[in-house]
């Protein structure tokens, strides 16, 4: 059995999780402080990829990034960066689909943070950056960790947007999910079932990790 799809799935999920982690943190941090109307609007836009069908996200990405489209052509000419039919394209598609999971969980954690602690810190002359990384982040770590693992788990299962932007090229862009689909389409039930089992084990492991992280903290995460 060729293990490339497993390696590729983990690589794509891991890198897209890192992207979604920082983008999600930044988005949660800035939207939490916006006035109510702007917050509501921005929140709807940022959450959209979670509720849109992944095929729609994939289509929009293709419209933007295809080598015949302005942005795609510019990226290719300027940086030699091709985001269609390549695994970095799959990273981008996965990050786009999973970003709202990170953003929403982290925002919930930030909103339940007791602001008086930050105010106390400021009276002691601490900088905002220090407060963010040394007070806010540690106190919100449950939510942030849960969001990260959830993002990773969803990234492992991404199919729609990834298959549209990156296609199915064995040895290059094939992930577990696209491999299962191709094996099913071509009637290879045995290998398809093996990959299904691998995927089940991997995803169940990630979700168990979320639960263990929650339990360790002694109280259920809100």
């Amino acid at each position: 059995m060729d293990w490339f799809p497993l390696y590729n799935s983990i690589r794509i999920a891991a890198i897209s999780t890192v992207l979604a982690f920082f983008l999600g943190l930044a988005a949660a941090w800035y939207t939490a402080r916006l006035p109510r109307l702007a917050k509501g609007l921005l929140d709807a836009v940022l959450t959209l990829p979670l509720v849109l069908p992944p095929t729609v996200v994939g289509y929009l990405l293709l419209l933007a990034l295809g080598p015949r489209r302005p942005l795609g052509a510019w990226l290719l000419d300027t940086f030699g960066l091709r985001l269609t039919m390549t695994w970095p394209g799959a990273v981008l598609a996965t990050a786009a689909v999973t970003f709202p999971l990170m953003y929403r969980t982290v925002r919930g954690a930030f909103e339940s943070f007791d602001e008086t602690l930050a105010q106390a810190g400021r009276t002691l002359g601490l900088s905002d950056a220090w407060l963010f990384w040394r007070v806010r982040m540690p106190l919100c770590r449950q939510g942030i960790l849960a969001g990260t693992v959830l993002t990773f788990a969803r990234g492992l299962g991404e199919y729609g947007a990834t298959s549209m932007l990156a296609g199915y090229t064995p040895g290059r862009t094939a992930t577990i999910s696209t491999t299962v689909y191709q094996l099913w389409r071509t009637g290879q039930d045995g290998p398809a079932l093996r990959w299904v089992l691998v995927n089940l084990a991997l995803s169940a492991g990630a979700l168990l990790a979320v639960n263990l992280l929650e339990r360790k903290e002694g109280r259920p995460w809100r």
Binding site: P67, M85, G167, P170
Partner: peptide
């Protein structure tokens, strides 16, 4: 193994991939 083939699930998908320059 050389990663030179990409598979579409019907003839039209393959056609689109060529038309879009993918």
């Amino acid at each position: 193994a050389a990663g030179v083939l990409t598979y579409g699930s019907n003839a039209r998908e393959v056609t689109t991939q060529v038309a879009e320059g993918l």
